[in-house]
Amino acid sequence: MDNLPTNQSINRDVGVAALFIAALRRDLMLSLRRKSELVNPLIFFLMVITLFPLGVSPEPGFLAQLAPGVLWVSALLATLLSMDSLFRSDFDDGSLEQLLLSPQPLFIVVLAKIAAHWMMTGLALTLVAPLIGVMLFLPSEGMPGLMLSLLLGTPTLSLVGAIGAALTVGLRKGGVLISLLVLPLYIPVLIFGTGAVQAAVTGLPIGGYLALLGALLALGITLAPLAVAAALRISVSG
C-alpha cells in the first residue's frame, strides 16, 4: 500500500513523448510476435494486384495506364483489411478498458497505436509498392510520386480507418461494417494519391498533390485521434 502514491507520481511524471514511445513499442512488439498480421496485408496487396492483369488485360501499355489507380485502390483495400484488428485483440483481452481507465491522455495512446498500425501496414505497402509498380509496367518516372504519395497518404488511411475500427470494436461482425463506414471517407486520399502518381508519370510537378495529401494528414492527426478516443469510450462503455 505504501508504494501506491509513489507509483501514481511516477505515472504523472510520464511525459507525453515517453507515453507515446511506450505505447508504440508495446504495439509494435505485439504485432511483430504475430507474424501473420504483418504479412497478411502485403499478401493481400500482391494478390489484388495480380488479379488486374488476369481480369483486364496483360498488355503493358494498358496496364501502365491503369497502374496508379490499381496500386492506390489495392493499398487502400489492404489497409482496410487490417483495420479490424487494430483494437480487436486489446478489446478481447480487456487491456483496452485498462487504457481507457488509465490517467494518461487517450489521445496520445490512440495516436501511438495508429502509428504502430501504420508502420506494420502503410509503411510496408509503401516499401513494396515500387516492386509492384514494375510488375504493372509503371514508368520509372512515376516511382517517386508513387512512393511519396503512399508515404503521405497511407497514414491518413490508418487514421480514418481507426475511427471505423473504434466505432465497431464492440460488434462481433464489425469487419464488413468498417469498410462500409470508412470507404467513402477514403475518397479524397485516393483522388489526390492517384493524381500525384499520374502527374509524376506525365512529368508534371507533384508538389501540389503532396501538399494536399500532407494537409489531409495534418488534419487527420489533429482530429482523428479525438474521434477515435470518443468512439472507443462509447463502444467500450456501451
Partner: peptide, 9 residues
C-alpha cells in the same frame, strides 16, 4: 450506444 456511435460517425 447506437445513437452515440452514429453521432460520432
Amino acid at each position: 450506444t447506437a445513437a452515440q456511435s452514429t453521432a460520432v460517425l
